[in-house]
Design a protein around this nucleic acid. Sequence first.
DNA 1: ATGACTTGGTTACCAAGA
Length: 259
Amino acid sequence: MRIATWNVNSITVRLERLLSWLERSGTDVLCLQELKCGPEAFPAEPLRAAGYEAALHASGRWNGVAVLSRVGLEAVTTGLPGAPEYEGVVEPRAVGATCGGVRVWSVYVPNGREVDHPHYAYKLRWLEALRETAAAEAAGGAPFAVLGDFNVAPRDEDVWDRAAFEGATHVTAAERAALDALRETGLSEVMPRALKYDVPFTYWDYRQLCFPKNRGMRIDLVFGNAPFTAAVKDAYVDREERKGKGASDHAPVVVDLAG
DNA sequence: ATGACTTGGTTACCAAGA
């Protein structure tokens, strides 16, 4: 089974690329983030025609997540239990589903903006809610994974220049501690191969030729429990999808499971 | 040079992304 996660930065703009990539990659289950559409604008019909059911959590202009599956889609959970509010709103940033016997969550962790911004405290609260859900679901013998845009670089080498991130979000001790707390629920990270260069970055800013210069970040992550990671045969970042006109600023992370 | 793209919406500018 091939499982992937991809922040598409608008499913409306990316639809033709998405359909093309699904066919080319042969992905069975895809976790999507930043749909940037409401449920009325979600392209359920073209995806169904391509063979994919969808579990959706979306509300409009910002955020929005989905799980696409062509191997079954059951036990959908819309939203993270206990998710915190931001400015009075619980944003659509998580959706869970069981696909072909594998329990997956597609997550879009809040950006945080600046370390002294309320969005940063919200990010840490949101990661704590994710930890609680993982603690409730990761135990047991069934494969379980959380995949998505975490907006956290786990290690210093996961950003193109550590000095450029001094004082910035995505690299702070508190954010990395939140990932450590997630690991303590029994999850470990599935480290993808890089198809070029040494570190498998997953995001490159649109500006300043960041992609050609490989000024990237590794912030799209996969955490699985032991039954999930034991089944992993291969994992890589498909940086080819970041190329060309009309690309998302994130590349898909692909995981191949035995069976 | 406190910006350099891209996206969708309170559109001919703005917020947000990271």
